[in-house]
Amino acid sequence: MTTRRTQQSLVLALSLTALTGCDAINDWHAIEMVQRNMDNMVFVEGGEFLMGNPGGWAMGADTVPAHDVVLDDFHIQKYEVTQGDFETFVEASGHEIKARF
């Protein structure tokens, strides 16, 4: 088994563990949602870039001073989370939504 497949299996297992306590139909929706989202992950190679204002333009407090940022390799989903997936996650995980909108 490749390292990538092992990592995906581990993330899937951890995600499913977090979504316990559902009835059978909700379990199926949660499992399907997690697998679909895992299948839509893409690899992004890490690297370094300059973050902030190197001078001469907008001077917001969050842009000064310019500094180097180093990111490790990571995976990210290539599509936005759908409202349906969010609702499945909220229901399966027992999270409470405090925002009104």
Results as ranks from 00 to 15, higher is better:
Met1Arg: 07
Thr2Ile: 02
Thr2Pro: 11
Arg4Tyr: 09
Arg4Trp: 09
Arg4Pro: 05
Gln7Pro: 00
Gln7Tyr: 10
Gln8Lys: 14
Gln8Val: 09
Ser9Met: 12
Ser9Ala: 14
Leu10His: 05
Val11Lys: 07
Leu12Ala: 11
Leu12Lys: 13
Ala13Gln: 12
Ser15Ala: 15
Ser15Tyr: 00
Ala18Leu: 14
Ala18Arg: 15
Leu19Gly: 00
Thr20Tyr: 05
Gly21Ser: 07
Gly21Asp: 09
Ile25Ala: 11
Asp27Trp: 05
Ala30Lys: 03
Ile31Gly: 04
Glu32Lys: 14
Gln35Glu: 13
Arg36Trp: 01
Arg36Leu: 07
Arg36Ser: 10
Asn40Tyr: 05
Glu48Asp: 07
Glu48Asn: 06
Phe49Asn: 04
Met51Gln: 14
Gly52Cys: 01
Asn53Ala: 03
Asn53Ile: 01
Asn53Val: 01
Met59Lys: 11
Gly60Val: 00
Ala61Phe: 02
Asp62Arg: 09
Ala66Pro: 11
Asp68Arg: 14
Asp68Trp: 10
Asp68Phe: 07
Val69Arg: 09
Val69Leu: 08
Val70Arg: 15
Leu71Trp: 04
Asp72Gly: 07
Asp73Asn: 15
Asp73Pro: 04
Phe74Leu: 08
Phe74Lys: 14
Phe74His: 15
His75Lys: 02
Ile76Gly: 03
Lys78Ser: 08
Tyr79Asn: 12
Tyr79Arg: 12
Tyr79Pro: 02
Val81Trp: 14
Gln83Gly: 10
Gln83Phe: 04
Gly84Ala: 14
Asp85Cys: 02
Phe86Trp: 10
Glu87Tyr: 06
Thr88Ala: 05
Phe89His: 10
Val90Met: 02
Glu91Pro: 00
Glu91Trp: 02
Ala92Gln: 00
Ser93Lys: 06
Glu96Met: 10
Ile97Leu: 15
Ile97Tyr: 05
Lys98Ile: 07
Arg100Glu: 12
Phe101Pro: 00
